[in-house]
Each structure stands twice: as C-alpha cells, then as structure tokens.
Amino acid sequence: MSGITEPRSTTKRVLQANIWLVYLFFYAPILVLVIYSFSDSRNVGAWGGFTLDWYRDFGDSSAAKGALSNSLKIAVVSTIVAVVLGTISALALERFTFRGKQVFDALLYLPIIIPDVTMAVMLLLFFSEAANIFGFSKGFATITLSHIAFSISFVSIVVRARLAGMDDKLEEAAVDLYATKWQAFRHVTLPLIMPGIIGGALLAFTLSLDDVVITEFVTGPGWTTLPVYVFGLIRKGVTPLINAISVVMLVASMGLVALSLLTDRARGESAEIE
C-alpha cells in the first residue's frame, strides 16, 4: 500500500506545530512533577533547592508502604488469574466455534468500554448483596475479584490479536508431525503467542495498579491500595510527599511501558518470521 501523501508546506508547518504542542502538553506536566518532587520546600510548586527528603518520607511512611504492598499483592494475583482466563478464552474465540460465541464476544468488550464509575457501582452493590447472603468482609478478595473482572477482557483481546496473526497451519503441521494436541499447543502455539500473553499481563498489571474508583468502592478495612491512599491525600491537599509517591508511580508505569515495548519488539521480530 502506498502511504498517505505529503501535505503542502504551510499546512505542513501547522501540522508540525500541532505535533510539538501535543507532545509538550503530554510531557511538560510530568516533567514539572518530577522536578518539584526534588524541591526542598514545604510549599508545593516553589523551588527550594534539591532534596531527597520526600522520597525518604515515603520510605518512612508505613501507611504508604502498606498501601504499596497491598497494591502489589492485588496486582500480582489479579494479573495471574486474568492472564489464565483471558488466554484460554482467546483461544476458544479464535480457534473454535461454539454456541453463544457471539454473546460471549460482546460480553468481553463491555468491561473495556464501561465507565469506571458504573462498574464500581455494579460491584459495590453486588458485593454488599453477596456479603448479606454469605457474610464476608470486603478487602483483598473483593478488590482482586473486581480487578480480574476488567482485566480478563484486556488480556483476551491482546492475546486474540496475536493468535489471529498466527498461521493456524502451524498447529496442523505440528499434529501432522506426530505431536498430540497438547504438544502442539505447548511447543508451537504457546511460544508464538507468548509476546501477546506478556503484553496482556503487563496491561492487566498496570490497570490493577492504576485503579482508583473501583477499588475505592469495593475495598474494606485495612486494604487501602496506593492509588486510593494517594487519592485520599490529594483530596486533603497537595504535599511534597504526594509528589514523591507520584513520581515513584510514574517510574513504575514507565518501567512497565518499557517492558511492553520490549515484548512488542519481540512481537515484531516474530511477525517478520511469519
């Protein structure tokens, strides 16, 4: 396919200006935040010389550290479950036909497009009804179950895209070469969709670490996650400590992006092979 043609020169300059404007818009606030997190001033937004005090505060704050550890536990467990369920469902949708497939397909899209608030309300009402019947207290389990509910869809879609790009003749070639169906999956399908699975896992992990609204609705005593904790702090006012925590969260996000880009590159390489 031939690409889109070059725009004319004045138009081109306007377009270029827009590009820089958008990137400036994206990155300037992040940069400002990072700079101020090193500022030695109680007054957020004023520069008072370089310091690492606020990061030290974060390290000393048991509440913040507890929230971080809660967040990580929830993210790890929900990611593992979502990856397993999402991957198997992607296989089912991409390689099989069965009754109710279309309904299932549509259902998988809903958690992606539904607004956070609505999903939060749904799960809040669900868990309070369930708690009335089964009598449990909210916390780790309710948060994790909720995060899985929205992560499955993301994993499934990412893995499915990868499966769709894979030649299904490869699986036939494997069984033709005496592999059982399980061996064909293990030695051919799985390694080839692995970049998709890893990409889906990173997405699920990020989404779990980022979520505020749903978590706030289904959390229980003792199970404050880092974003919920930070959100609470922000509502009380801006402090240098929040700056520091924010930057830590930012760096974590960036790390995950970097990882996903690396698997993306692996994805690109094996796509080339096909």
């Binding site: 490869l170 070469l177 080839l192 094996s270």
Partner: peptide
C-alpha cells in the same frame, strides 16, 4: 493426524518460525 504414517509438505511450508532449521527438522 499424529496416528497416521504420512507427512505433509504444506502449501506455504508452515515452518515453525520460532525454531531453528535443525529443530524444525527434528520436530517429528
């Protein structure tokens, strides 16, 4: 297929892209 004493050369070869030539050939 895995119980039949026949093998196939596929239309677009269907070589395993993640394996070396040796691993492809010794797969069966």
């Amino acid at each position: 297929p895995n119980k039949r004493p026949v093998n196939t050369v596929f239309q677009n070869y269907a070589l395993f892209p993640h394996m070396s030539v040796l691993d492809n050939v010794s797969f069966g």
